[in-house]
Amino acid sequence: MGEKKSFKTVMDRDGIDRCLTRIAYEILEKNKGMDDLVLVGIRTGGVFLAERLKKKISGIEGGDISLGILDVTLYRDDISTSYKKQHPGKTDITFSLDGKKVVLVDDVLFTGRTIRAAMDALIDFGRPKMIQLAVLIDRGHRELPIRADFVGKNLPSSLWEAVTVNLVEKNGIDEVIIVEDAK
């Protein structure tokens, strides 16, 4: 901290909005409508994106789509090794996942470990018919055999960079930035 970090903006408010609009249409296209479809946002960034997708999907198709909130902290594989840990927040899935097509929503897809944890968590809640993954940014560097079904933007990045998604709901601004030399 204290050092000057250079960052560049790779997506602004309109860019994020267009990506989400496209993803909403793609989700409906792939699933042929919204029957049995539910959204589950991964805390914290994914929750706000999932809320926005819910609005867009309802706007396109009419009708309501269920939205759940998932906290994966307790399913992580680095609880006792990592020094940088997250707040174990509340999970809030008030509907059954049995037989549902679940679209997991997260902001950045990176190593894939969060998604691995999220899938373990979802399966503890029931037996979804299918789990799909929607992310705003795919920055590469996967450590597990996981890929997203819906991607806002592919952003090849170096391991020395940090990709940050800021959203109005928590940061007061909509933007995707790359911070260089983040170590």
Binding site: L74, I79, K90, T91, F125
Partner: peptide, 16 residues
């Protein structure tokens, strides 16, 4: 507070 909800699940167990 965050752990309260786990006891209301059908599968009341997390792998932490």
């Amino acid at each position: 507070e965050s752990f309260l909800e786990i006891s209301t699940r059908e599968i009341k167990k997390v792998p932490t």
